[in-house]
Design a protein around this nucleic acid. Structure first.
Length: 777
DNA sequence: TTAGTTCGGGTTTTT
DNA sequence: CCCGAACTAA
């Protein structure tokens, strides 16, 4: 034992106590900027130094980037020979790896595909179409969200169908077949050998539940478990951790309830409370000293978060200087806001010799980036946008990756649909429709149906093209295990014709697309060149690459290559980052807090935590701005300043003169609303109760957050009855085209189609069940 | 089957 | 305003 633990001495006493805790359950509640990542890395380093095998450590982070960074920092402390063997990554990527290893147990191919949200939604659309459901009523996005919420709470399709509350809820909102859609969606995933994001966790739970030997094996492999950003875990993740930690109970969770900003995707702060119940003898460590920000920023942030009812008490404080007041700027328009911020950055940069990388512009929605881009460009300030369309969501990248996926897993239906006729090879919609119908009738995958396309009357040139396509894919497949990811990728890009197709497009966008493909291939080269020191002879293949790539997100992008740039990103993306100068923009009522959050206290509190996260990113100076008018879909839109501004104690603010006037035009009185919500008489039984920690995976959970009342969407029925008596020759009034004369009515009820002549708009064909018509004569 | 057009709807936030 | 879906013409 080497007695001077030099690296632990670099911590303050609270941090050191947490980092030196080895055995038994522990929780670290860490205020913003209090060095939580530091504690995690030092603790892992310390564990290893104390002789614990890195092979037995599992560290779950929120992003891949966080994992990578932490690994680097650990290897700086103890050398990378040891740190290499730690299993460190996001829940999704770690358990995707494990599911791949155990794939045969859960009836999935080893190279199962991972569907991203776009794939999931596309599949849902298919399912709806096949079931003959209206996708205006069953909106794919909404259906997906509902299914996702279920999966995150471990509610299977069977549980769903058996749950009277949820089924009743669906029935009353006019969507009685929701449970069926869910079941069908899962069936199609199974047939395609694919999992969506939520399945990666759901199936892990099933695996651990149904295979005690597997559970036992991983319990003994992962004797020390650490979870970062614990406040952002959902029930499914919670239960995985609980099961894995059950044997040794060496589980360490780190989080900050004040920074929980992912409830909308199922994160459950209640997991923190569950932890207390599951491990009554756990040790609690609180990190309350902030090292990041000025007193002004820390105290202003405290004043914001104190408005929330749901929170764990803690006192975040700092020894740092008081610093500048937070400047509030009121701009006339979104463009003015952009110019103001860019101008400020220009000035501060000149006055303080600051590098562009010291600035961040944070907004609520990605769409807000435009005006800042423009203004920064005009002043020649380099910037980088994080988020928005991530690299892997670009069409050309998704297309090529679809070829990769198809090669690794021919049953991947979303991949087939994407590339079967791209680049154009004369396989049109009719052929694809025939195949899809045939496949679903026979219960086989699209690919298998292609093999038997004669059965659905596809022959001649279409059949010929189809078989050429299959021959090509098969020629890729046979090389899958012998070629590395890069060689394989290059071959596919070439042979599929994608490279040629993109090269032919000489527009700037076309050139950019071509370069993106090059970049993807470069990335694959890098990936393929990595040598696993423990298995130096093993090649890194395309399936290996796909597991990584499917779960990479924009937050994982490398900081940046060369030279400093101003960072533009959503507040969600800024989580965990820090900048000397932070601009929080678009502080308008309805934008931030989002209009969607205004009718529930929980949602509003999440917005408030988001604001807290934004402000606490700042080290030296924070500036807040808002615009009285901004364009939305090309239309001007006026708004009031955000009530959040008024929630900050004004002693920390540098307000513009207009905003100091005590009489304000009736902003929401949040104080009194809070009281209303405290008792909430209008709400029937506010079931905020968390899922019971002891719940078995199949226990349905009472009304998860996403399940609040669904707005009624039935407006077309009224129009239908009105239109029933439209006759040929009638004069009618249309809300958009004005007066018109009915020339002809054809088709069968309820699909009656009318040909109407409108003097103002010409002749139109309208379906009576949809058109809003008034009969005049 | 494809290319060219119109039309309607979408903006929270993301693994 | 911008994208994809749906429709129309060749």
């Amino acid at each position: 034992m080497n007695s001077p633990h030099h690296f632990l001495d670099e911590l303050n006493s609270a941090q050191r106590a947490a980092a030196a805790h080895i055995h038994g359950p522990m929780m670290v509640i860490a205020g913003a900027g209090s060095g939580k990542t530091r504690v995690l890395t030092y603790r892992i380093a310390y564990l290893i130094e104390q002789g614990i095998d890195p092979f037995n450590i599992l560290a779950l982070t929120f992003t891949n980037k966080a994992a990578k960074e932490m690994k680097n920092r650990i290897s700086k402390l103890i050398g990378d020979g040891d740190s290499r063997h730690i299993w460190m990554g996001t829940f999704h990527s770690i358990f995707a790896r494990i599911l791949r290893i155990e794939s045969e147990k859960i009836n999935f191919p080893r190279n199962f595909s991972i569907y991203d949200s776009a794939d999931s939604k596309s599949l849902i659309k298919d399912v709806l179409k096949e079931m003959g459901l209206d996708d205006k009523l069953y909106k794919p996005g909404m259906v997906h969200h509902r299914i996702s919420t279920c999966k995150n709470n471990l509610i299977s399709p069977a549980d769903y169908a058996a749950d009277a509350v949820m089924v009743g809820d669906d029935r009353s909102s006019g969507r009685p077949r929701m449970a069926e859609v869910y079941a069908q969606y899962n069936l199609r995933l199974l047939k395609a050998g694919a999992m969506d994001f939520d399945d990666l966790l759901f199936k892990t739970n099933e695996l651990l539940r149904d295979y005690p030997d597997v559970l036992h094996r991983y319990q003994h492999k992962f004797q020390y478990i650490l979870v970062d950003e614990y406040q952002d875990t959902n029930f499914s993740q919670y239960l995985i951790v609980k099961q894995l930690a059950a044997a040794f109970q060496n589980v360490c969770v780190v989080g900050d309830d004040a920074q929980s900003i992912y409830a909308f995707r199922g994160a459950n702060i209640q997991n923190i409370l569950n932890f207390r119940k599951d491990y009554p003898d756990f040790s609690l460590y609180k990190l309350e000293q902030n090292y990041r920000s000025t007193k002004t920023i820390v105290e202003a942030a405290n004043s914001i978060i104190s408005k929330n009812r749901d929170q764990i008490k803690k006192e975040v404080w700092t020894d740092n200087d008081q610093g500048q007041k937070i400047r509030v700027h009121r701009a006339a328009t979104d463009n003015d806001e952009g110019q103001f911020v860019a101008g400020q950055i220009y000035q501060v940069r000149a006055n303080e010799q600051a590098d562009p990388s010291e600035f961040a512009i944070l907004y609520r929605t990605n769409a807000q980036s435009r005006s800042f881009e423009e203004s920064l460009r005009k002043l020649n300030i380099p910037y980088k946008i994080y988020g928005g369309l991530s690299f892997y969501q670009r069409k050309e990248i998704k297309d090529l990756i679809a070829y990769f996926r198809l090669t690794c897993n021919p049953n991947d239906e979303e991949a087939v649909k994407r590339v079967i006729n791209y680049p154009k090879r004369g396989i049109g919609d009719t052929t694809i429709q025939k195949l899809m119908i045939g496949a679903s009738e026979r219960g086989v995958s699209l690919w298998d149906m292609m093999d038997r396309c004669g059965e659905v009357g596809i022959g001649g040139s279409a059949g010929q093209r189809l078989s050429e396509f299959m021959v090509m894919i098969r020629s890729f497949q046979v090389q899958l295990e012998t070629k590395n990811a890069y060689d394989m990728g290059y071959l596919i890009a070439q042979e599929s014709g994608i490279l040629r197709d993109l090269f032919a497009d000489r527009t700037p966008e076309g050139i950019a697309r071509y370069e993106n493909i090059q970049e993807l291939l470069n990335g694959m080269k890098e990936f393929s060149d990595i040598v696993d020191l423990d298995f130096p002879d093993q090649i890194r293949t395309m399936p290996d690459f796909l597991v990584d790539v499917a779960l990479l997100t924009d937050a994982d992008q490398e900081k940046d290559e060369e030279g400093g740039k101003v960072s533009l990103m959503t507040i969600h993306a800024a989580k965990g980052l820090e900048f000397p100068y932070v601009y929080i923009v678009g502080l308008e009522d309805g934008l931030f807090p989002s209009a969607m959050s205004l009718d529930s206290r929980e949602d509003l509190e999440e917005e408030r935590r988001l604001f807290y996260v934004a402000l606490t990113r700042a080290e030296k100076e924070a500036t807040i701005s808002y615009a009285l008018m901004r364009y939305k879909w090309g239309q001007p839109q006026w708004s009031e300043r955000s009530p959040f501004i008024d929630e900050i104690d004004p002693i920390y603010l540098d307000l513009p003169a207009e905003d100091k006037s005590p009489k304000r035009s009736a902003p929401i009185d949040f104080q009194s609303q809070r009281n209303d919500w405290g008792t909430r008489p209008s709400q029937p039984a506010p079931k905020t109760a968390a899922p019971k920690p002891t719940a078995s995976p199949s226990t349905p959970i009472a009304a998860p957050a996403g399940f609040k009342r669904v707005q009624s969407t039935s407006s077309s029925s009224a129009a239908g009855t009105v239109n029933a008596d439209v006759q040929e020759g009638n004069e009618v009034m249309h809300e958009k085209f004005g007066k018109g004369k009915v020339l002809k009515i054809e088709g069968e009820s309820p699909d009656l189609k009318a040909t109407i002549f409108f003097p103002s708009a010409g002749q139109k064909q309208l379906l009576l069940k949809f058109a809003k018509l008034q009969v005049l004569s």
